[in-house]
Amino acid sequence: MTMNTDGTSAVEVRNLVKTFGGCRAVDGIDFNIPAGTVCCILGPNGAGKTTVISILATLTAPDSGSVKIFGCDVRKDANKVRRLIGLTGQFASIDEGMTAAENLMIFARLLGFSRKGAKERTKELLEEFSLTEVADTTLSEFSGGMRRRLDIAASLITRPPLIFLDEPTTGLDPRTRAQMWHTIRNLVKNGSTILMTTQYLDEADQLADSIVIIDRGRVIANDTPDGLKKSIGSMILRITVKEMTRAEEAAVIIGRSADSAVPFSEACELTAPIDNTGCLARVLAALKDADIELTEINVTRPTLDEVFFALTGGGEESEDR
């Protein structure tokens, strides 16, 4: 994935605030997306991801702050912005009662294509998303994956330079999910900028040039995947010490050899972020030298919870939401 270096910002969000009732769904968010890159907004349910997307896509007016899409303000130039974006929402926004081709035709006509132009574009898109064979099938007979593909196709009719995908893989089986990743990579290859939301860390890691992690309406991290990994480790080592009395000693040893913040201890279980296998080997060797016996060793990818823990430095707070 090559970063676009000409410095144009596809998206510029400054101090964005949106309140629903008494709840600050978006509470002062800032971020930038350089043109031609993929940005993942990562966060748990209710973090404010969808609200951010709907403000950026001109569906919801913000209370304060500014959002610029390729330099156009979402409030003042809403119609200009709408010509620059394609939105695929969290729930399929296509017509159940019509066929795949009819759906695309209607959207293309609405976007100002002539009848002939709409037909051509429909054909292209159906081919691109391997839907040609089911072009004349009513959507009620579509699988979840087909529906999702058509949904994305419908937001690409004008080849918009900025594409919003709100949780594009939620609820898809692993195979369909991989297909979706492939689709997203192709879009980027063709020069689009993508802003997508996800609940999965590995997805963001796979696709994103930059990751914005939000929690309770605030940005808690904004970095490249590599940068994030450096701060939280690309893997999580989880070990169980045989003798509880030596847990604290083990914690110090691990902290020193993994070169990270002091790992937190829960009875005999210790958790530490790890960057690479060399680091893992150092930790284990150090524990062996100190003669500390282990009953269990686990190396896993960090979960979103662990990322939050690492970033906010306290699990309690984020649990009782």
Binding site: R82, R83, F91, S93, A154
Partner: peptide
């Protein structure tokens, strides 16, 4: 009530159409 309305709204389409 369907999410298709949000797609229409995100497109440069006349609001009353």
């Amino acid at each position: 009530d369907k999410s298709i309305t949000s797609r229409f709204k995100s497109m440069p389409v006349a609001r009353f159409a």
